[in-house]
Design a protein around this nucleic acid. Structure first.
Lengths: 163, 163
DNA sequence: TATTGTTATACTCTATAACTATA
DNA sequence: TATAGTTATAGAGTATAACAATA
């Protein structure tokens, strides 16, 4: 109620308390800002949908990639996901602790670890894919199927900005 | 050279060392994954372009928003950017230390701080806008002007996924 | 010598509780 | 009692150096 003065019907007076919306135009018209906000919104939505499965986006992508590429080296999976090798160790520790994935010794090169899903991991990935499909459906509902395909194509192109 | 055997011209043999590219299709066909990778690529590119100005994406957006909305409360600027109030204190400490922005006491409400750019801050924002425009031009070159507009529209819609 | 996985470590971002001064 | 700014703190995520085992 602050900023409303005593004059009856004085609707056109200058605002005392400028509580109106901010001018965000300098940010909303460049790609980087809505890109960041959309990424946070999609990941927040992902986390809500995956709370029951207790999977983070990084864990989901790791399990999905191992599932599609069983037997690959730990460093290959980490590299494809853009995760530094040291940081990927704790990720695999946790997935192994939960019985979802395993690190196998390979006779060909005893330095490396061949990654694979356990049967439990396979089952969880199957459930996770269905949950993920629900998010994708909701995204299509929001922006349309054609727009979704164009969005993925444009985002993939933007990746080439990387030096 | 591993995996290449001695047979001359044996180009069709099965690979011994499956060093080929990984199957990423489970990730590249859903919005979340390319969205995250694109956001990282655009921010990395931003950081390279802004190294000379020593501005992070968060600092740039903060200065741009204060510049477009001088006199607004610290909590209003923080809220519009999606930054928690406690985390925004260090941000303003640094911008103030560098002489780019200032926190003014307002007589109307002595609890709040009205934010504004200093002349130095105004000048830096003007330079920053030109650097930012260069990134936007590069993005248009990569994906096309129409696609860029559609991209921003789709990303803005995705924000509505937030609970 | 180089590579793979690993440990240790530091730095940034983010989230929450609680304090203070004002309202 | 509620709000604005602040402090303290804890948790993620990420980056680099260095080590042991193996190639």
């Amino acid at each position: 109620m602050a900023g409303r003065n005593a004059g009856a019907g004085a609707e056109v007076e200058t605002r005392r308390d400028p509580a109106g919306p901010l001018d965000m135009s300098a940010l909303t018209t460049i790609v980087g800002y809505p890109l960041r906000r959309a990424q946070l919104a999609v990941f927040d939505d992902f986390n809500r949908r995956f709370a029951a499965l207790a999977l983070s986006p990084a864990q989901f992508s790791t399990l999905a990639l191992i599932g599609a590429n069983p037997g690959r080296k730990q460093s290959e999976i980490a590299g494809a996901l853009g995760i530094q090798r040291p940081n990927f160790v704790a990720m695999m520790d946790e997935l192994e602790r939960r019985g979802l994935a395993e690190r196998l010794r390979t006779p060909a090169d005893r330095r490396s670890r061949a990654l694979a899903l356990t049967p439990t991991g396979e089952a969880l990935v199957a459930r996770a894919r269905r949950v993920q499909a629900e998010q994708e459906t909701e995204i299509e509902r929001l922006i349309g199927g054609t727009s979704r395909e164009l969005l993925i194509a444009a985002l993939t192109q933007l990746t080439r900005l990387a030096s």
